[in-house]
Lab assay of single mutants.
Amino acid sequence: PKDQAKKEIEKALRNGDEEKAKRLAKKYGISDDDWKELKKRVS
């Protein structure tokens, strides 16, 4: 599910692991808009 994916990506971003977050986003098909939203929430 997308919500689970977003949680994992957000966690990776919080850990400062943007490479992992990007890989997860690609793997789960997270859209650019969702990606920006996640980045905003974390920063």
Rank of each mutant, 00 (worst) to 15 (best):
I9L: 03
E19H: 07
Q4G: 10
S43A: 14
K20P: 01
K6V: 15
D3Y: 11
Y28E: 05
E19W: 05
D17E: 10
L13R: 00
K36P: 02
D34C: 08
L13F: 03
K7Y: 08
L24K: 01
W35R: 01
K6Q: 09
G29P: 02
A21L: 02
R41L: 14
L24I: 09
K27S: 08
S31Y: 02
K26S: 09
R14S: 05
K11D: 15
R41I: 12
E37R: 06
A12K: 02
K2I: 14
D3V: 09
V42A: 10
D17W: 09
K6N: 07
W35E: 01
K20G: 13
K11S: 11
R14K: 08
V42M: 08
L24T: 02
E19G: 07
K2W: 10
S31K: 03
I9V: 09
K20N: 09
D32T: 06
K36R: 11
A12D: 02
E18W: 12
L38N: 01
E18S: 06
A5R: 08
E19P: 07
E37Y: 04
L24A: 02
D34S: 03
Y28R: 02
W35C: 03
Y28W: 07
Q4Y: 11
K26Y: 06
R14A: 08
K40E: 15
W35I: 08
G16A: 04
E37P: 00
K26Q: 12
L38F: 03
D33V: 09
E19T: 07
S43L: 14
K40D: 15
D33E: 14
S31E: 05
G16N: 07
A5L: 09
L24N: 01
W35Q: 01
K40N: 14
K40W: 07
K36N: 15
D33G: 07
Y28N: 07
K36G: 07
D33K: 09
D33F: 07
K11V: 12
A12W: 06
K11I: 14
I9N: 00
K39T: 08
W35T: 02
D34E: 15
R41Q: 11
E37K: 07
A25T: 02
K7H: 12
K36Q: 15
V42L: 10
R14H: 06
E19A: 11
K20T: 14
S31C: 03
K20E: 15
Y28T: 04
E8T: 05
G29M: 08
K7N: 11
S43H: 13
K26P: 02
D32P: 07
D17N: 09
D34R: 02
K6P: 03
A12Q: 04
S31N: 08
G29Q: 11
A5E: 11
E19V: 09
L13T: 00
K22V: 10
D33M: 09
K40T: 11
N15I: 09
A12G: 01
E8A: 08
I9Q: 00
K40F: 07
S43C: 07
A5K: 07
E10R: 04
E18V: 13
G16W: 03
S43E: 15
D33N: 08
K2Y: 13
R41H: 10
P1M: 14
E8S: 05
G29A: 09
K7I: 13
L38M: 12
K22L: 14
P1T: 13
E18R: 05
S31L: 04
E8I: 07
G16E: 03
K40G: 08
G29N: 12
D3W: 13
L24E: 02
D3R: 09
E37I: 04
L24M: 05
R41Y: 04
E18N: 08
Q4L: 13
E8Y: 05
I9C: 03
D17K: 04
R23T: 10
K22E: 10
E37F: 04
Y28F: 11
D17M: 07
R23H: 11
K2C: 11
I30N: 00
A12L: 13
I30Q: 01
K2P: 10
E10T: 07
K36T: 10
E18Y: 14
R14Q: 07
K27N: 07
A21C: 01
D3N: 10
K40P: 02
K26A: 12
E8N: 04
S43W: 07
P1R: 12
G16R: 04
D32H: 06
E18Q: 07
S43D: 14
A25I: 02
E8D: 08
Y28D: 02
D32N: 07
K40Q: 14
S31G: 06
A21Y: 00
K6E: 10
K27W: 10
A5F: 11
K11E: 15
K40M: 08
K39C: 06
A25L: 03
K2T: 13
D3F: 11
W35K: 01
K27A: 10
R14W: 06
K7T: 10
L38E: 02
K11L: 13
L13A: 01
E10I: 15
K27D: 15
V42N: 06
E8V: 05
N15R: 09
K27C: 14
L38R: 01
R23A: 14
E37G: 04
N15Q: 13
K22C: 10
N15P: 00
L38D: 01
K39R: 09
V42D: 03
I9D: 00
A25W: 02
K7D: 11
V42Q: 05
K7S: 12
G16K: 05
Y28V: 06
K2A: 11
A5M: 11
P1K: 13
N15A: 13
D17P: 01
S43K: 12
Q4E: 13
K26N: 12
K7P: 03
K7L: 13
K39W: 04
A21W: 01
K6A: 09
K11C: 06
D3C: 05
K39A: 08
D33P: 04
V42P: 02
L38I: 15
W35V: 08
V42W: 03
D32A: 08
Q4C: 11
I30W: 09
K36E: 15
D34G: 03
D3T: 11
S31A: 05
A25E: 01
R14I: 08
I9S: 00
R41W: 04
A25Y: 02
K11W: 05
